[in-house]
Amino acid sequence: MLYLFTRFADWTIIELIGLDKDSRLGAALHFFIEDTTKIFALLIVMIYLIALARASLRIERVRDYLVGKHRLVGYGLGSFFGAITPFCSCSSIPLFLGFTSAGIPIGATMAFLLTSPLINEVAILLLGSLLGWKFTLMYIAVGMAVGIIGGFFLDSIHAERLLQPFVRKAFEASDAAPSEKSAPTASLGLRERHRFAADELLDILGRVWKWVFIGVGLGAALHGFVPEGWIEQNLGQGQWWSVPVAVLTGIPLYSNATGVIPVMESLIAHGLPVGTTLAFCMSTVAASFPEFILLKQVMQWRLLALLFAMLLVSFTVVGWIFNGLSAWII
């Protein structure tokens, strides 16, 4: 079905504008038109359907479900809920406080917060349609692994010592028993679900539409204007140093998954190895200074620095591993 969008781009470029599809400008414009129309069509349909299905998933219920779970189970669940719960970075502080004061270990909470920006329905949708299901599955596995391993690591160094004092106090005061005060779960009718889904669709589209244009625009520029073969010749062998360089390059770039995935598509098409691309993408999405500064309200500097270093190391390792396995993946 997706070939419709390729046809549409063909038609626009060749018939309507009258450009050669293989010229630089033509190739860039073709990429831009095909990807933006495809992405917006998919986003509108899928965000609505997914929101319809998860209208009754409340963050308070996730919290109540996580309370009192065994630590090891908590990492997996935290990461899983991080992936399926809608999330905006401005909610990370209240969420962190809500989880922590309910007695959920910091490892499970951070598994949630680390996975959340990496995996969401928009990211999965884009990856699936632009890079194929193998890559998408791999991406989900890696995103969850980063959360789970990160959570495990933070608990094993007793990261709760490095919280801000008032948060630590709230954590220690909780009795880690399932909370009694959880709101009764009203069953939602189709009308409420529709209203929720429509609100959600507008909200998410309102947040991501500009990222789609920026991301696809950059991808298109790369596609049309980076000389054919340049990336492949210079970085195509997956040289070990190219991965940490990709991670470092990603830090100052502040984008969400929506903006970076079309760039990944273009980079991979130009012969950048999968692991290097993945490392760059994850670093751009998950290691961003503005969000870390927000977390300062609940964490001490030492924990923030530790968290940051942990992310950089894990993205580098992920990149190396996947460069090694790349023959299987794409």
Partner: peptide, 15 residues
């Protein structure tokens, strides 16, 4: 202030 969020048990903003 995060303290106020904690005090009222707010997990999603704005509240």
């Amino acid at each position: 202030s995060p303290q106020l969020l904690l005090q009222y048990g707010v997990m999603q903003t704005p509240a």
